[in-house]
């Protein structure tokens, strides 16, 4: 869903807005974070669910997203912990992100089926039914109305998908697991996605792939704003991809000016550091060549 504005983008931005607003408006001498108790009601107003089956669940998910946006870990689902637990301690510019950076919010996860091969409505129960002939484990049979795949026997080889003349057999999986290049997503006891943090490289692909907004990352937006507000010198080191980040109307000059208006002392493209690295490497290489 990258590049398409969906309710997920909206929710994500609303959460960041809440965190940023409080970071700017709060009294720096006070460490009261009660503001965040109201946040989930501002983001999910009213009594009718907009996104999921209930407003209570929607707000509960927003609350975990708020914690992650504050750079804090999620709370356990089975024990009581205050929403604001840890916020006072993490409200300083000295706080840095702790792993895990990428988190599945368990109760937001729809426990999508893992790699599955399924017969769709397109099956015409044709005379040739090559799907049965190509199956190496005899998992495909012809049922009353359509071909049937015995999920327990199926080894997901995909031969029947290729053989069907009507494209009636589809293979699908979990968008998060399909996007993950590190093979870090497995299932918990309830069939929900869970991240193997030893394998995860925090690339964020699962976050943008999950259609249920069940995966979120931590941010340091609050700590950054606090650093600026308390007079620290803050440099923005931005990835070269910033050029395409805000659409065609935002020129690089505008983005850099905007960052400076936010309070950055200087804005440097991260590639600049790489240039220095390359120059240094080249000098070293030449010096070694001369020696030998």
């Amino acid at each position: 869903m990258r590049g398409i504005f969906t309710p997920i983008t909206k929710i994500r931005r609303q959460v960041f807005t809440e965190v940023a607003r409080y970071a700017y408006e709060r009294d720096l001498t006070q460490s009261d974070f009660n503001y965040f108790y109201e946040s989930s009601y501002r983001i999910i107003p009213g009594e009718v669910a907009q996104y999921r089956d209930s407003v209570f669940k929607e707000r509960a998910i927003i609350r975990e997203r708020l914690r992650l946006a504050m750079g804090l870990p999620m709370r356990p689902t089975d024990t009581h912990l205050s929403l604001t637990q840890g916020m006072a301690e993490s409200a300083t510019p000295n706080k840095h992100l702790d792993k895990p950076l990428v988190n599945v919010i368990p109760f937001a996860c729809e426990a999508c089926p893992t790699d599955t091969i399924k017969v769709s409505d397109n099956c015409r129960k044709c005379l040739a039914h090559p799907c049965t002939a190509v199956c190496p484990v005899k998992a495909v049979s012809i049922g009353k109305h359509a071909a049937v795949i015995d999920q327990d026997t199926c080894i997901k080889c995909g031969r029947c998908v290729q053989a069907c003349p009507y494209h009636a057999i589809e293979r699908f999986g979990r968008p998060c697991a399909e996007a993950c290049g590190a093979d870090a997503i497995f299932s918990d006891a309830l069939g929900r996605a869970e991240i193997d943090q030893d394998k995860c490289v925090a690339c964020g692909l699962c976050i943008v792939s999950c259609p249920f907004a069940a995966i979120a990352d931590k941010s340091e937006i609050f700590q950054l704003i606090t650093a600026i507000r308390t007079g620290r010198t803050v440099y923005a080191i931005i990835a070269p991809s910033f050029v395409g980040q805000f659409g065609p109307l935002a020129t690089p000059g505008k983005i850099i000016s905007g960052l400076k208006m936010l309070g950055m002392a200087r804005v440097v493209e991260v590639g600049w550091g790489a240039d220095f690295g390359s120059m240094h490497e080249a000098d070293e290489f030449l010096a070694q060549r001369k020696l030998s």
Partner: peptide, 11 residues
Amino acid sequence: TMMGAMNIMDA
């Protein structure tokens, strides 16, 4: 813009 105005324009 933050709530998706640019995306509406494109769409």
